[in-house]
Nucleic acid binder design. Structure first.
Length: 445
RNA sequence: CGGGAUGUAGCUUAGCCUGGUAAAGCGCCUGCUUCGGGAGCAGGAGAGCGGAGGUUCGAAUCCUCUCAUCCCGACCA
């Protein structure tokens, strides 16, 4: 992408409405613009990040056998009324009417709809287990939206639902999702710690929240750093092997990890002090196993092996896709801007032409641009007629993992400069070496 | 929802107390000089002050209502 023809409205100054780092940086780096309280327009660069995150979520869900579908954002109020959830959900649910005065809701969550839908396709114990998910916009009319996309009213969420014949099978589904979540967050370059959580109004007895440590988190969290090391090796776990799953699950859930709601001072004291991690946590996902509550509400049942009707056990599994954009920035930025983990970066490489109009520099950049593209490396080419300082500042702000800086000074020595955004390391290399380095990095990462 | 605050150009703000017909920096446009970490000079475009009503000869400034946004708290499957 040529920056001269790309919509990237960066800001030099901090917008007044943004207080926390991620919100400021998302506005300054031209990722989003606010449309209303808690409602955002995603500009091209922000949308690229959002898509990258969604794609990682999708791949890891698919990998463990979850099936993607797409449920609508608008639903009739009928189902919610029949099951008593219409009143129970409260003012957070947006209610509206169509031209026929039919009552609709903008879906805040989909346990009811999906359970109701499955009545048509799941009739026998042979049809279970099933895990279905979608990545779709949700609306929750928050009392007080804040922190940019981290607590918006409209947000992109992956919500998944499992259906199992019995408790034991449901626990297996829960563990499979735990595995998928650990892999998902790891691929995004962040450390998300599973913590025992309250199940809240939804009920059930098994639930974990996944938290990223960041100063602006909304809750206080405590964990034993052994959780981090226990995540090593999740790549190799076979989700179809219940014993391997159990080992994995035990390893990641045994070390102490809790939000303030579940915090137990006595148990916390048992953790060696050098392994204690404590601070604010941003919740980026939550998983529940809540039994037969919703099956019962909507009348979802299957014939068991003995012909007797059974209410399937359900679980639900959420990942805040749009919240992750903010959360990753909270966890990965410095005073000059965002530092994108490679896996979610909107582009892999910033190609900086330091002297547009200089035939030699232009030619070198055009060639690099074409070759990076042919290597399948996404590149944002800063071909604007701006001064070097402006380009450096903008690119540091946007935070692409690599910068290739091409100017007359380097070309005199047949070199370009390769800069790693995260570490600030710079390498003066030939064009060939720079390309090799970048393609090698891509293969490795 | 309780408490606090703010709405003036694309952005950040000054002006408001003490009414006199909108100002600056950044950004944008033109030209020249520059060009390896947000350039300099010169010229230029751009807002009628969130909205409605009122007071007044005259309102961004005062009054009333209203809308919106932000912060703290409560809330947050």
């Amino acid at each position: 992408m040529r920056l001269s023809r790309y919509t990237l409205p960066t800001l030099k100054e901090n917008p007044a409405e943004a207080q926390i780092a991620s919100h400021r940086l998302m506005l300054r780096a031209g990722l989003v613009r606010q449309v209303a309280a808690g409602i955002y327009a995603w500009l091209p660069t922000g949308w690229r990040v959002l898509r990258n995150i969604a794609e990682i979520v999708r791949e890891e869900q698919d990998r463990v056998g979850a099936q993607e579908l797409l449920l609508p954002t608008l639903q009739t109020a009928e189902l919610w009324k029949q099951t008593g959830r219409y009143e129970a959900y409260g003012a957070e649910m947006l209610r509206l009417k169509d031209r026929h005065e039919r009552e609709l809701i903008y879906s805040p969550t989909n346990e009811l709809l999906i359970a109701d839908l499955l009545k048509q396709s799941v009739n026998s114990y042979r049809d279970l287990p099933q895990i279905l998910y979608h990545i779709q916009w949700k609306f929750r009319d928050e009392l007080r939206p804040r922190f940019g996309v981290m607590r918006g009213r409209e947000f992109l969420m992956k919500d998944g639902y499992s259906f199992d014949l019995d408790d034991q099978s449901a626990v297996t589904s829960y563990r499979i999702m735990m595995l998928a979540y650990m892999r998902t967050f790891k691929r995004m370059g962040i450390v998300a710690v599973p913590m025992k959580a309250d199940t809240g109004p939804i009920g059930g007895d098994l639930s974990h929240e996944f938290h990223i440590l960041a100063p602006t988190g909304e809750s206080q969290v405590y964990y034993d750093s052994a959780v981090e090391t226990a995540q090593v090796g999740t790549e190799e776990v076979d989700h179809r092997d219940p014993e391997a799953l159990e080992r994995f699950f035990t390893a990641v859930t045994t070390p102490y990890a809790a939000t303030d709601e579940k915090h137990d001072e006595a148990n916390w004291e048992q953790v060696p002090s050098e392994r204690k991690r404590e601070g604010r946590g941003i919740e980026v996902g939550q998983i529940f196993n809540f039994g037969t509550l919703y099956s019962e509400l909507v009348g979802l049942q299957v014939a068991g092996p003995d012909g007797v009707a059974v209410l399937p056990n359900m679980g639900s599994y959420g990942i805040g896709v749009s919240r992750l954009v903010g959360a990753i920035i909270e966890a990965s930025h410095d005073e000059t801007g965002i530092i994108w983990p490679d896996a979610v970066a909107p582009f892999q490489v910033a190609l900086i032409n330091l002297k547009r109009g200089d035939a030699r520099v232009d030619a070198a950049c055009d060639s690099l641009y074409a070759r990076l593209q042919s290597l399948g490396i996404s590149v944002l080419y800063d071909d604007r007629e701006e001064r070097p300082g402006t380009k450096f500042a903008d690119m540091d702000l946007i935070g692409l993992p690599w910068q290739i800086i091409v100017g007359p000074r380097g070309l005199d020595k047949d070199q370009v400069e390769l800069k790693r955004r995260a570490s600030g390391e710079r390498f003066e290399l030939s064009v060939e070496d720079a390309l090799n380095r970048l393609s090698g990095n891509r293969a490795a990462g």
